[in-house]
Amino acid sequence: MIKALTFDVWDTILNEDKFYQLLSINIGKKLGKSGEEVFKNIMSIDRDAIKIRLEGGFKNIIYDTAEYFSNRLGLKNQEDLFNSVIEIIESEEICSLAFEDSISSIHEIKKMGMKIGLVGNVLFWPGMITRLILKRNGLLDYFDATIFQDEVGYQKPSKEIFQIASKRLNVSLNELGHIGDSLENDFVGAISSGMYGFLIKRDLNANYIELGKKAYAIRSLSFLSEIIKKINKA
């Protein structure tokens, strides 16, 4: 039975590409480059940084990843990168990052009487900034707990970060579900921790596929409530 649900943030409820596009336009103006050129570069850096993060290569996650991104982007220092992040979160464009199914689906889950939380890894912007972005997109107030890597010292897919979530939501791990877009960090992390795992794949041909007793792939967040009702009825 599922009594609570945690969500990943980026590319699960917020569109990371849109965030990076806004950031790329801002940085491009500082570097005299097109936003498109910077975006291609930043996406490549992001993929490499995620691999390094998973391997434990960044000791101070915020500072070290900021230095890594800044150096590869050709910025003078981390401060230029931090200022660009601040500038875009002050813009009106930052308020349009939520996927179409995010608010309605989360609202439906809350109507079922379930507690919900966020479990997120970070790169060069801290969990505090992500909370602000969620607030500006009308999402933050839905969550009963928000857990971020830079604040608790653990990252997905480690069991420890999910244990923190279960304690804050006052449920056991086997009563907790987690939904995210990363096969390793979200789906495998949840399943290996004894939780229900939901992998969001927006290009899935079916509405959802049952991959195992506690494992599902879904095309849209809008199918979450249907699956949870089915699980809890069994």
Results as ranks from 00 to 15, higher is better:
16 E>A: 14
149 Q>P: 02
196 Y>D: 07
17 D>M: 10
30 K>W: 10
213 K>E: 15
26 N>A: 15
81 L>P: 06
7 F>S: 02
157 P>W: 02
153 G>K: 08
217 A>Y: 11
122 V>H: 01
174 N>L: 02
47 R>H: 03
5 L>F: 01
79 E>Y: 08
203 D>I: 09
151 E>M: 05
16 E>I: 14
79 E>V: 13
118 L>H: 05
26 N>H: 13
226 E>F: 07
87 E>Q: 08
200 I>Y: 08
62 I>M: 05
168 R>Y: 02
135 K>P: 01
184 E>P: 00
22 L>M: 12
35 G>P: 12
135 K>Y: 05
1 M>C: 06
192 S>M: 08
181 D>F: 03
133 I>Q: 05
144 D>Q: 11
157 P>R: 00
93 E>W: 10
183 L>W: 04
202 R>D: 13
225 S>M: 00
200 I>R: 05
91 S>K: 10
78 Q>Y: 10
141 D>E: 14
82 F>T: 07
228 I>L: 07
97 L>H: 09
219 R>A: 13
129 I>K: 06
78 Q>F: 07
41 N>K: 08
172 S>G: 11
10 W>F: 14
217 A>Q: 12
39 F>I: 03
162 F>T: 01
170 N>M: 02
195 M>C: 03
115 K>R: 15
179 I>S: 01
135 K>I: 05
46 D>L: 02
190 A>E: 06
152 V>C: 06
228 I>V: 06
42 I>E: 01
221 L>K: 04
143 F>T: 00
205 N>P: 13
40 K>T: 04
16 E>L: 15
224 L>I: 12
60 N>D: 15
181 D>C: 08
38 V>A: 07
79 E>R: 14
135 K>C: 02
20 Y>E: 07
70 S>I: 13
143 F>A: 04
182 S>N: 15
175 E>G: 09
50 I>C: 03
89 I>D: 04
204 L>G: 07
117 G>I: 01
92 E>A: 13
104 S>R: 14
2 I>G: 05
45 I>P: 01
59 K>W: 08
74 G>Q: 08
223 F>Y: 15
115 K>Q: 09
93 E>I: 04
133 I>M: 12
22 L>N: 09
122 V>K: 00
197 G>T: 04
126 P>I: 04
119 V>G: 00
217 A>R: 11
54 L>C: 02
150 D>K: 08
66 A>L: 10
171 V>K: 00
